[in-house]
Nucleic acid binder design. Structure first.
Lengths: 307, 307
DNA sequence: GTATGATTGTACAATCATTTTACAACCACG
DNA sequence: CGTGGTTGTAAAATGATTGTACAATCATAC
């Protein structure tokens, strides 16, 4: 279902006063939510992301609001020109679901139809919360395409194409969020031989959304140079994602090597490739749901307060 | 990108007091930001870069500020002034050189400093024509990092990080341009085993800028499924980029296989990996300069008119 | 009917920014 | 070491911008 939000819920999401949101609208006309029949503001997910971006600019980067507004307007001009939901109302029907968007995205990506895929992505991000899009649409979509590749009904080229489009979206969101340097720094990568990075990207985006500074290295990362990187950048956490169980022995050895060199280094291991991880490393496992991640992060913050 | 910033945000970026920035302006007239209608200072990315340079000289290298100012003024006189398109010439202030931007980008990327790298990319794109940035800054930068990897002074992680940032920028521009369906459709990829895609991306961006619809598959693309793709999407041209000469025999075989199946299919072969290509395929070679690409494209259009 | 949420217009306090003036700290030189 | 110059920083007065509050009124849910 495509959601819209009233101003109170938006103010809560963004942790900023509703009067400020209204003042920005009145003074700068930059985020103009639709209205209910009685005139109440109804914000889309895109509206909320725009407001979030403005808040980051003004509060964290010291940009004054009128400059930030001009910057956002320029960014909008540069964004992919796809029909906005309102202009494309024939697509926006009651009952729009994760499944139906996913189906159409699958067809567009398998057909290398970047334009169509981008339209559907824009639609999805305007209807649903961005994390839901990644978790309920894009991750299942890439898993399915991965399965189809294994079955031989989808080529590597098709899989690469789909993965590349999702990676682009990941970085678009990743770059919006600021960094809270009070939080520990994280190095995130897939080990050498592992090509599936959607799980890594999702967790990285989750961390970044919460202000964690993440150095994300992506797929197929050899061990070479990691120790220097961890040392020089004072990395405190290492996040590893793996679906290929065959890589487990080498990856366990890597983790142990890093533990020996950096006794205080912490790890997060995710993905089905870690299902049979050794007993001594099981405490590092983290499941794949937002719920588990939120609990994990709350514990991390608590540890930070104590430290 | 072309943003301007108020003094508070500049002070935050540079981690220096606003009163010092104003004092330098008043005393030395070296960084003179534009003003808003109400007289507020508005700093360009170039202004910020100059201030950053002055700060490095005074705080890290112990140069006193008046000497640093004189040095900067001399640097400005010496810098290579590369004009933007004629329409922008009047706006061009004494600028950076490709080399100096490249140096700083190198340092930022090797240090996994995405924020700094993005600032420098924004500066580069604000000063120079985007194709010049790709050709004169980013491509040489990635080649250099590739060489450093071969020499062992740069890790795969560092190379991946740099490549990923450039790829993000590529897609930002790629997605801006529309498609002219009167032009032939192009499939672009690096063959299996080839990891360096900057040449492919540049040529793909060139084509897209001219309205060509390009399916870009990126690195390490197996032959699997290509025939179906070419058939279903009525691909008329195939663009291949390769730096690894060791892949040449397999790639020549692939090209011949595709030629046999699709007699009208045309090819563009680029990169030093094709230096010793067989005589019968030499007519497909295309050099790496914009000049050669413009000639090639003019010929393509001429052929299109006749067809 | 009551409590809560929401609207707009207006106003005020807080913050940001300006210039000018001044002073302390630092540095170079004799 | 004393002196003069340079430089970073602060304060005052003033103006602009922006965050927030309030009043009057309307909408909604229970």
């Amino acid at each position: 279902m495509g959601f819209v939000y009233n101003i109170k819920s938006v103010a809560k999401m963004l942790d900023m006063p509703a009067v400020t949101i209204r003042a920005w609208e009145r003074r700068y006309s930059v985020v103009l939510p639709t209205r209910s029949e009685s005139g109440h503001r109804l914000y889309t997910e895109q509206d909320i992301e725009d407001l979030r971006w403005l808040k980051v600019q003004t509060e964290e980067k010291g940009v004054n609001i009128s400059q930030a507004v001009k910057m956002l307007e320029k960014l909008r001009e540069q964004r992919q020109v796809v029909p906005k939901p309102a202009a494309d109302r024939s697509e926006l029907r009651a009952g729009e679901s994760f499944e139906s968007i996913r189906e159409r995205l699958h067809d567009a990506m398998i057909s290398f139809d970047a334009e169509r895929a981008n339209q559907l992505l824009a639609l999805a991000f305007s209807l649903f919360h961005f994390e839901d899009v990644f978790h309920e649409v894009l991750a299942p979509l890439l898993h399915r395409i991965g399965d189809e590749w294994e079955q031989g009904t989808v080529s590597v080229a098709q899989e690469h194409f789909a993965s590349s489009m999702v990676t682009q979206k990941f970085y678009q969101f990743f770059n919006v969020f600021g960094v809270n340097r009070a939080l520990p720094k994280v190095l995130a990568f897939c080990p050498e031989g592992e090509q599936h990075q959607i799980g890594l990207l999702l967790f990285t985006l989750f961390l970044r959304r919460h202000g964690v500074d993440v150095i994300c290295l992506g797929t197929n990362t050899p061990a070479d140079g990691l120790e220097t990187l961890i040392e020089q950048h004072r990395v405190e956490w290492v996040s590893l994602s793996m679906t290929d169980e065959g890589l487990l022995p080498d990856v366990e050895a890597l983790v142990r090597r890093l533990q020996a060199k950096f006794p205080t280094l912490q790890f997060v291991l995710g993905g089905q490739g870690f299902r049979d991880v050794s007993e001594d490393l099981r405490s590092f496992l983290l499941g794949g749901s937002l719920e588990e991640w939120n609990r994990w992060f709350a514990a991390l913050q608590k540890r930070n307060e104590i430290g």
